[in-house]
Design a binder for these strands. Structure first.
Lengths: 238, 238
DNA sequence: GTGTATTTGTTCGTATGTATT
DNA sequence: TAATACATACGAACAAATACA
């Protein structure tokens, strides 16, 4: 029996039965009978589906419908970027440009249309970012991530928000695993403040420019730091 | 031995040895010895990596480093969208809005900066599209895909282009599998012509508006056609 | 075209670890 | 603590596809 078919039939089973995220899947013996395949074949199919985030396997407990998050996409993007980097491509720069291209387009549409509570939250995030910058910079990355996530929440499109977060995660994971130098925290803070002021004022062009400058800063750090690195890479985590 | 580790160690092997796409991986017996695991465990790890597009397994031939394409991302997005649709979410609309948000931002940056040969190619594509529309509409989808791909080629970022194509593929695969009605070919042709004229003229706002109108057209077909569909879904292909 | 070696695909049986009851 | 159900892991065998002499 073709292994490729097994994956498709399990996916079909999830869709047909309208199983929501977290719903239990049939056990392996049940799947063996339902699919007419051996345990190993079923397991290989489940492993592949797990890698795509479609199912979730909990040891000694059972198999469940996955959270349908974009985590596998992050995984794939990150690996593609790391592998490309060590082969001499400027894959990390391309990933950064991808983020820049998407975010500049979005922020200009968003300027002046961010709900008040989100603006307040962004204020608080910038303040926290300034505190963390003054105290050595611990936790800065998380705050930066939250800032970008909150900024684009007003788009009211969960998928779009998740994609942006996925791009952020992939970039920062690769940047960290490759030992990239962190930004100057004060400059980063100032630029986030400027982004917030711009979108609050409703000036699309200014907001776009603020984002562009923010990314320009990161890009400079990227190109000046290491043209190529010969040392063995760190292992990236699950 | 944790199965999760095996995947990571195989990925690490690829990166450490700087294996390019298409390079042969060690055979399963070799991996068994190198990783100190049984054949079944090795195979499960390989299956998972295959699902992520990191390795490619060819029956009776060998295992190779994958093409690192975004095909798994398309697969994941498509399934997530289909599953969400049948659970009553407007996931397909969200996917369309994701494309619209990204493309409107990009086309305004691109207006007036598309190299002449690409403009000529776009011309030819619109002409072909009009021919296909007149002849019943066969092959229209492929031409539409090529139009969007060529349009954003000038961004000179392979990753960005691939991501956009991935979004296109995911949307159209789901739309087709869900039995969505095709657009009116004449309207589609006219809108693509307008997009081309706008970007050629260099008018950013006009280009943005043209893209928005194009997507607005698709969105209407989407919302009027089927609020919810109770019939069992088609199987989606590998 | 045949046969053989290599490599992946599939299956079975068995033992072990883990969580629920 | 014991019993049960489940996933995890290993080893061995045979089938199928491919390459090469």
């Amino acid at each position: 029996m073709a292994a490729r078919d097994l994956q498709e039939r399990i996916k079909k089973l999830i869709v047909d039965r309208r199983l929501p995220s977290g719903a239990p899947l049939p056990t392996e013996p049940e799947l063996m009978e339902y699919l007419g395949a051996s345990r190993n074949s079923v397991r290989e199919a489940l492993k592949a589906l797990q890698a795509m985030g479609i199912v979730e396997i909990r040891h000694g407990f059972g198999t469940y419908v996955g959270p349908m998050s974009l985590a596998p996409m992050i995984e794939g993007l990150a690996f593609r970027t790391v592998a490309g980097h060590y082969r001499g491509e400027d894959s990390l720069l391309q990933l950064l440009e991808l983020r820049e291209a998407v975010e500049t387009g979005l922020v200009s549409r968003l300027a002046g249309r961010i709900p008040e509570p989100d603006l307040g939250e962004l204020d608080a995030l910038v303040v926290r970012m300034e505190q963390q910058a003054a105290q050595g910079g611990a936790g800065l990355a998380a705050t930066d991530r939250a800032f970008h996530a909150t900024l684009y929440r007003g788009l009211d499109n969960v998928l779009l928000s998740e994609v942006l977060e996925a791009f952020w995660d992939a970039f920062h994971r690769v940047h960290r695993d490759l030992g990239g130098e962190p930004q100057d925290p004060r400059i980063t803070c100032r630029q986030h403040r400027e982004i917030l002021d711009a979108v609050r004022s409703g000036d699309s062009l200014r907001a776009e420019e603020a984002i562009r400058e923010h990314f320009g800063n990161i890009r400079e750090r990227l190109s000046t730091a290491r043209p190529q690195e010969p040392h063995p890479p760190r292992d990236d985590r699950a």
